[in-house]
Design a protein around this nucleic acid. Structure first.
Lengths: 330, 330
DNA sequence: TTGTTTTATGAAATCAGTTTCATAACCATC
DNA sequence: GATGGTTATGAAACTGATTTCATAAAACAA
């Protein structure tokens, strides 16, 4: 591997001058500049990122933490983030938290040890204070998930409205006994709380109380959905509709319902969330809430790059809108 | 950020001794060792990876390149790779090639500039010579995709057998007019060629010739599948079965067939590949070929770590077996 | 008691860049 | 002709670790 000294030697210049050429400093004669470019080309020289980082330079890497990449919502989100990052000459270091605090901490330390310039967090496991303590090492951005009391910038969709229009749709169709499925364990903050609020508001509009037996927490996967359906099947008083936290849960509910001989939506209307490819694929096709994933990714990277360049943000809290996609499951 | 000098100062020792403690060198008194640990703890000290890398140390990062992360096969593979890597104290730098040569080159350069210790390539865009020229910067491993003439180690499934048992299954069910769908553009090497061979062999066993009108190349997505189905629908002589390159293509075929009023498998038997979650989800459920993704990931990381530690490999070419999963689409 | 290992530690070099400080030539201004 | 700003470049310091070389004390052998 050629080093900057090799380039300096070949051109008869000093390392300092070569470095200036590389970094586009002013006051370099055109003549020397071209000499350096030529030598770099000939030697196949590429600056060593570790050495640059050591001098406090940027790494041109942003970290993205997701709960699980196999969840299509997040793989599409990472896809979008990576595309935009690449266009801006940034790499993405992807990391799964697996919903574990220690993995998230390991990840946050990448910022501390300057392995990434900034972080995009699409999941939050640790306490607010812990995460905020890392902001002194570099910019952090919440994407999708967030903490309401935090000063950390956020890009997210209006989850409360999303849940509201979803639930309202079920109510408009005449369903009154609505079950509710959420991903959160403790729904005391962030997107799950917002969804809760939207759901409650819609019910309140119709003077309906939530039946706590019909509330399922910490559900994420297809298997979780199947499990929920089995629980419902075993109930004396069954709901006539279910609002789920993701298309995957909804798909699980439908699959299990079918194997139990139930009809969707006649016996149970099912509402998804995300509008993943499976929403169209499953029979009956899922009514669901479409999230602007590509847009979230684009805006998130843009905002983070702004923070990295110390440019001002027009808003610290960017809220995107969602759309109801009506298909056959409701 | 605390540095090694801070730790040295606090303990009254030299940087050299502190470094020795960190790296478990011999000949350190228990007393000093504990002193250093205590100081590191108190200062929240963490070694700066850039500085370590600069001294030629390993980065504890492996790079993984995939064509597209939104393809569930690859998101499951990356998931597996990341899990195993994390258990071994390694991070994963994930990268999408988007099937573009220049993105792949950019990625290969991460190895050259020592940003990753080794690479796992699950897609190959550039010529053999190009990729092999990078092996002098660090170990490269092919996972899933590969080049037959190359010296680069490979972890893959027996694609030829996979296609053979899949096609044989169709033949056993009595289908004789079998269409074929592949991902490759030029099927002249690697996994697509192997599948080809397996497909041909199965047909040869029954003295059937391939109808080239029924061969579709460069197909990957659900949309591609729909497109294929539309093409088939427009044919005078239609196939009675189709062997596809992924469950997604198969799902697209089924969805489009249904919307065209065709019955699966009566009008067209559909064979998937991968056994993704959607295989179970779609109606009719897909007959498909299950790939041992988790195992591929585990073995790949193990092999790469061996290469990194200069340990010998028991085999340079690890081949895993696949299984036929029979459901209702055939 | 002397000589040789073994154990334990530190000073300084090293990795490959960037940045500070110094300097010199050139041009303009008073 | 002295002063001052702009342009252009290099020597050396610096980033934060690891490693080599040197050295001294302790342990062991002759």
């Amino acid at each position: 591997m050629a080093t900057i000294s090799d380039v300096a030697e070949r051109t008869g210049l000093s390392k300092a001058t070569v470095s200036r050429v590389i970094n586009n400093h002013p006051y370099i004669s055109k003549e020397k500049r071209e000499l350096v470019y030529k030598a770099m080309e000939e030697l196949g020289y590429q600056p060593n990122p570790s050495a640059r980082r050591l001098r406090g330079q940027l790494t041109n890497t942003i970290g993205v933490i997701v709960p699980r990449i196999v969840n299509p919502f997040f793989s599409y989100l990472v896809d979008a983030l990576e595309q935009v990052a690449y266009e801006n000459n940034y790499q993405v270091l992807m990391f799964q938290s697996d919903e574990k605090k220690d993995k998230e901490l390991y990840f946050l330390n990448l910022l501390k040890t300057k392995q990434v310039d900034g972080l995009i967090m699409t999941a939050i496991e640790n306490e607010r204070e812990v995460i905020e303590s890392y902001t002194r090492f570099g910019p952090i951005l919440f994407c999708n998930e967030y903490l309401s009391q935090s000063e950390i910038p956020v890009v997210r969709v209006d989850q409360s409205k999303a849940a509201y229009i979803g639930t309202k749709h079920l109510l408009d169709r005449g369903y009154r006994k609505i079950a509710y499925c959420t991903g959160g364990l403790f729904v005391d903050d962030g997107k799950d709380k917002d969804r809760n609020i939207g759901f409650q508001k819609a019910l309140n509009d119709h003077q309906i109380n939530i039946n706590t037996a019909w509330v399922f927490i910490n559900k994420h996967t297809i298997e979780d959905g199947r499990h929920v359906m089995r629980q419902i099947a075993g109930m004396n008083e069954k709901p006539d509709a279910i609002f789920t936290g993701s298309d995957e849960i909804a798909a699980g509910v439908i699959l299990e319902a079918k194997s139990l001989g139930m009809k969707i939506p006649e016996d149970l209307a099912v509402m998804g969330f995300d509008d993943q490819p499976i929403a169209e694929m499953i029979d009956p096709a899922l009514t669901t809430i479409q999230q602007p994933i590509k847009e979230m990714g684009t805006i998130s990277v843009d905002m983070l790059l702004r923070l990295l360049k110390n440019q001002p943000l027009d808003q610290k809290h960017k809220e995107l809108s969602v759309e109801l996609v009506i298909r056959s499951s409701t």
